[in-house]
Amino acid sequence: MLQKKLVITLTTAQGSRQYTLGQLARYLLALFLVMSICSFFVSNLLLVKTTDDLDDLEQGIDTLTSQYELTLGTQALQKGQLNQLSSTLQDLTLERDKLQEENLRIGELNETLDASLYGLEDLLGLPQSDEMTSNRADELTVLASQRLYFLSNLPNGLPIQGIRVSDRFGMRMHPVHKKRVRHNGLDFKANTGTPIYATADGVVEYSGYHKKSGFGNLIILQHGLGFKTYYAHMSKLKVKSGAFVSKGQLIGLSGNTGISTGPHLHYEVRHLFTPIDPEPFVAWNISNFDSLFSNVKGVKWASLRKMYPLNQALQTAQQ
């Protein structure tokens, strides 16, 4: 009986050899081959699955990386926005503080301005307003400017400081000629060298020694609206004929030149060559502004009112 044998022939360069396997060996070889084939296919399947899993994992990693980078970018953007917002809030806080300080300063300025305007009413000799409105402030400004214009151009105030009046305007016994004559000005007793000042803006009509009048060293100033002022018996002259002078400017020093019994200043105010009592002009200021036009009778003030209404602002304010 022929036995079933498995013959395996191996051929090499040296020749061929045959090996004979029994039935059990055949079974084992077959089992090994089957297991090898199964292992191969299972390994391939696992490799494919593992490869797919790795691809999915790489895609997941790429997705996570992109999301992480996006998150970082978003955080950086948010951080920049927060920093900008913080800076803006700081600027707004500073601006708010500045505005508060400015409001306080404006409030203080308004209080100061109101106080100044009420003080201006007192200075102008006007009754105090119940409320300081912008219209009232404008009226006061116009009125003050109007009065200052006239006080700059018409004689007012003292031509010499701290000196007593030794002789006034009007008829008197002349101290040298010993006869009753009209005295056309005010005499201010003063030591030689006392400063003398212009009582209004003007131009020097005459500056020199005036022998004919007995005034000695004399300065004549021309002012607005036909007014002139005379300063006589001076020891020194500080301005020359033709020069422009402003109110309060030093024009000379007191003395005893000409026909004089002692050092003093003879001061006159004239309108169109007519001497006028200087005392109302000496006492005239911004507070008693209207007093000059009622106290000085030798000037036709009515025509001046028609040309430039003196009380226009005051009349408007009282309506």
Rank of each mutant, 00 (worst) to 15 (best):
145 S>Q: 11
75 Q>F: 12
136 R>P: 03
152 S>P: 02
127 P>Y: 00
94 L>V: 07
103 N>W: 00
64 L>D: 05
167 D>F: 02
38 C>V: 08
169 F>G: 01
83 N>F: 15
102 E>A: 10
99 L>F: 10
131 E>N: 09
122 D>P: 02
176 V>S: 10
44 N>D: 06
108 E>D: 14
149 Y>E: 05
75 Q>V: 14
57 L>Y: 11
127 P>V: 05
130 D>N: 09
58 E>V: 14
133 T>P: 09
97 D>A: 14
37 I>F: 11
109 L>N: 07
54 L>D: 04
85 L>M: 10
144 A>G: 02
103 N>E: 12
119 G>M: 04
37 I>A: 15
85 L>H: 12
45 L>P: 00
100 Q>T: 01
98 K>W: 03
134 S>N: 06
58 E>C: 08
149 Y>I: 00
61 I>F: 09
40 F>T: 11
156 N>C: 07
84 Q>R: 13
42 V>C: 11
65 T>M: 12
77 L>F: 09
49 K>Y: 12
140 L>T: 04
175 P>E: 05
83 N>W: 15
48 V>Y: 13
50 T>R: 07
43 S>N: 07
99 L>Y: 10
76 A>R: 12
62 D>A: 13
78 Q>L: 15
71 T>L: 12
109 L>E: 01
118 Y>I: 09
160 I>P: 04
145 S>T: 05
133 T>M: 05
159 P>A: 05
121 E>S: 05
173 M>H: 08
147 R>V: 01
162 G>F: 01
173 M>G: 03
118 Y>D: 02
51 T>D: 06
105 R>N: 15
155 P>F: 02
162 G>T: 00
37 I>Q: 09
38 C>P: 00
123 L>H: 07
171 M>T: 00
117 L>H: 03
54 L>T: 07
40 F>S: 14
99 L>G: 06
68 Y>C: 00
39 S>P: 03
91 D>R: 10
92 L>S: 11
168 R>F: 03
139 E>Y: 14
58 E>P: 00
93 T>G: 15
131 E>W: 08
50 T>S: 11
37 I>G: 12
157 G>R: 09
129 S>V: 03
121 E>D: 04
48 V>L: 14
113 L>D: 04
67 Q>S: 12
100 Q>C: 10
77 L>D: 14
115 A>H: 03
68 Y>L: 04
152 S>E: 01
92 L>K: 14
90 Q>C: 03
63 T>K: 11
45 L>W: 09
143 L>H: 15
109 L>Q: 10
109 L>W: 06
48 V>F: 12
169 F>E: 05
102 E>T: 01
63 T>M: 11
37 I>T: 08
139 E>V: 13
103 N>D: 10
167 D>E: 08
160 I>N: 02
47 L>C: 08
144 A>D: 01
97 D>M: 07
53 D>R: 10
58 E>D: 11
72 L>T: 12
78 Q>C: 10
141 T>Q: 04
65 T>A: 12
98 K>C: 02
67 Q>A: 14
152 S>H: 06
171 M>Y: 02
134 S>E: 06
152 S>A: 05
81 Q>M: 13
112 T>K: 12
119 G>E: 06
173 M>C: 07
163 I>N: 15
82 L>S: 11
40 F>W: 09
147 R>C: 00
112 T>E: 03
172 R>M: 05
